[in-house]
Design a protein around this nucleic acid. Structure first.
Length: 267
DNA sequence: AACGAGGACAACCGCACAGAT
DNA sequence: CATCTGTGCGGTTGTCCTCGT
């Protein structure tokens, strides 16, 4: 279906934001709150696309943001979450208070990718890369992450597959455009992810419903003790596929169940 | 001091999804 | 149920900065 452009491009500024634009945006949001980004530029007197305003606010002007200074623990958490979620930057960002998806995405592309390569790990699959490839990125340090990613192996399956049946041979439905599973071949037979995230990774405690949407939890159902359900936290809504019913209406859209792989099962 | 290469980061673009109509 | 609109996400690009020569 055709759709109208999100804004009148001929009359909008592009490129770097000026201090004055920032001030206008901040003042407007302080006065009126977030919402209706499409109409915000006009209301705030900005010659900007609504999407551009939203991006600017979300990534740089929000008061609760902390910038830079990623710690090694942050790195490891990001790596671990990426191995689990793929390029779901918004979900990963949800585990790092004060961080934005864009910041994490950039940080991944500029720092962590290289870090993993130097450890001989493929940044997408989180598997050891070939000796030849590893030689191209000689490791300058031990590979703590590789050894720390020990534990149960998990598959990520579309929610439509449900919990009960065997895992489908292919895991991704295309939501995650590059979550490490798009290259065809047998994936991650040795991908070991310690998914005891809540308990072992020092994640923040449950928050308000609006914020809790991306906090990983264990599945509450005893009969599904082996499964870890990310249903709500990955976006499943009440009444959909999973019966956890712990969700509030708000939440991201990604929609996966995650469960341990069975013996010998590959994703 | 000047220049080029590579890195880091900010911003844009296109698409997909959810809710409204 | 189909269509439209607003919003959010992920990928990509552009620009500025830093470092080495």
């Amino acid at each position: 279906m055709g759709r109208s452009p999100c804004c009148e491009k001929a009359h909008t500024n592009k490129g770097a934001w000026t201090k004055e634009e920032d001030q206008r945006l901040i003042a407007h949001i302080k006065a009126h709150g977030e919402g209706c980004w499409r109409s915000l530029p006009k209301a705030a007197g900005l010659l900007r696309c609504g999407k551009s305003c939203r991006l600017r606010w979300m990534n740089y002007l929000r008061p609760d943001l902390k910038r830079g200074n990623f710690t090694d623990d942050d790195d490891e958490l990001i790596i671990k979450l990426h191995s689990l979620l793929g390029n779901k930057w918004s979900l990963i960002a949800g585990q790092l208070p004060g961080r934005t998806d864009n910041e994490i995405k950039n940080y991944w592309n500029t720092h962590i990718k290289r870090k993993l390569l130097s450890r001989g790990m493929d940044p997408q699959t989180h598997r050891p890369i070939s000796a030849a490839a590893a030689a191209a990125f000689p490791s300058s340090s031990p590979a703590p992450a590789a050894s720390r990613l020990a534990g149960a192996a998990f598959s990520v399956v579309p929610a439509s597959a449900g919990f009960a049946g065997p895992s489908p041979p292919s895991s991704d439905d295309g939501h995650s455009s590059s979550g490490g599973s798009s290259d065809g071949g047998p994936r991650c037979p040795d991908l070991n992810l310690d998914l005891d995230l809540d308990l072992s990774m020092g994640l923040p405690p449950p928050k308000t419903p609006a914020v809790v949407s991306s906090t990983l939890t264990s599945h509450p159902h005893p009969q599904q003790r082996q499964s870890i359900c990310l249903c709500y936290h990955l976006g499943v809504r009440n009444g959909e596929a999973c019966a956890c019913k712990t969700a509030s209406p708000a939440g991201p859209r990604a929609f996966r169940y995650i469960r341990p792989l069975e013996e010998g099962q590959y994703i």
